[in-house]
């Protein structure tokens, strides 16, 4: 307990003291996970909406696979991206391996199924309510998908946040494709793992606090947004 207390107060000093090393790690983490979330949302929201609305052969299979992929193990995603980006791999010439770019690719693949599957569910539920009205107004399936994405925008924030939370908290994928290189690809989670194994508990705990604070802040913002939306009848 004494260890924890000491480490805790040292961690808080690091955070408050604007430790350059700590904050550069935080900044890279945010950059990678936010970029992955933006890309995954740009693909996953329309994908989820179209799977919700369009009837095509193999649709049920697609839904099952999509839902199953929500639980992809990060290290496996990391391994696949590693194989694709490694020098001998098909995307090797891009030279992305062990760069933040590779980490963004890996996290995008990791959270794309989450955003697509959750938004498919949200849009499918809304479609039940909207279907006759939108059909009557003459909307085709692409127009209906766009309308539902817009009308469900506040619920869909939940899907996007779930994706961001997963990306920010995972360690396996970024570790495998990024390599945890100090100053280049070291992010909060890989750093926490490393510092803990090295016994540098203040640094690990400090990053842990920051990570928790970010996740809490993001969710608080989401709740505030939802409440504001509810007041406006949205």
């Amino acid at each position: 307990m004494g260890d924890l207390g000491q480490a805790g107060s040292a961690a808080i000093q690091l955070i408050l003291g604007a430790d350059v090393r700590l904050w550069s790690i935080v900044a890279l983490s945010l950059k990678v996970s936010l970029a992955a979330t933006v890309i995954a949302a740009a693909i996953g929201l329309p994908l989820g909406a179209l799977v919700a609305l369009k009837d095509f052969p193999g649709r049920n299979l697609a839904i099952v696979v999509l839902n199953a992929c929500m639980g992809l193990p990060p290290v496996v995603v990391g391994l696949v991206v590693y194989l694709l980006l490694s020098r001998a791999g098909p995307l090797g010439p891009l030279g992305l391996l062990f760069t933040p770019g590779a980490m963004i690719v890996a996290q995008t693949l990791l959270i794309l199924p989450i955003i697509a599957a959750v938004s498919r569910q949200i849009v499918a539920d809304a479609w039940g309510e909207y279907r006759e009205q939108l059909t009557s107004l003459g909307a085709g399936s692409v127009q209906a998908a766009a309308t539902l994405l817009y009308d469900c925008r506040f619920s869909l924030m939940t899907a996007i946040l779930a994706g961001f939370g997963r990306a920010a908290a995972e360690v396996g994928a970024v570790l495998v494709v990024g390599g945890n290189i100090d100053g280049v690809t070291r992010v909060m989670t890989t750093s926490i793992a490393l510092e803990t194994s090295k016994g540098d508990l203040p640094q690990a705990l400090g990053l842990g606090f920051v990570l928790m604070a970010i996740v809490l802040a993001v969710n608080a913002a989401a709740l505030a947004l939802r409440n504001a939306a509810a007041r406006q009848g949205a």
């Binding site: 309510e129 909207y130 006759e132 009205q133 939108l134 009557s136 107004l137 309308t147 817009y150 009308d151 925008r153 009848g233 949205a234």
Partner: peptide
């Protein structure tokens, strides 16, 4: 055009 018993209002 059709007007339903419980019209669906778009969130706008």
């Amino acid at each position: 055009a059709m007007v339903f018993q419980r019209p669906v209002m778009l969130r706008r």
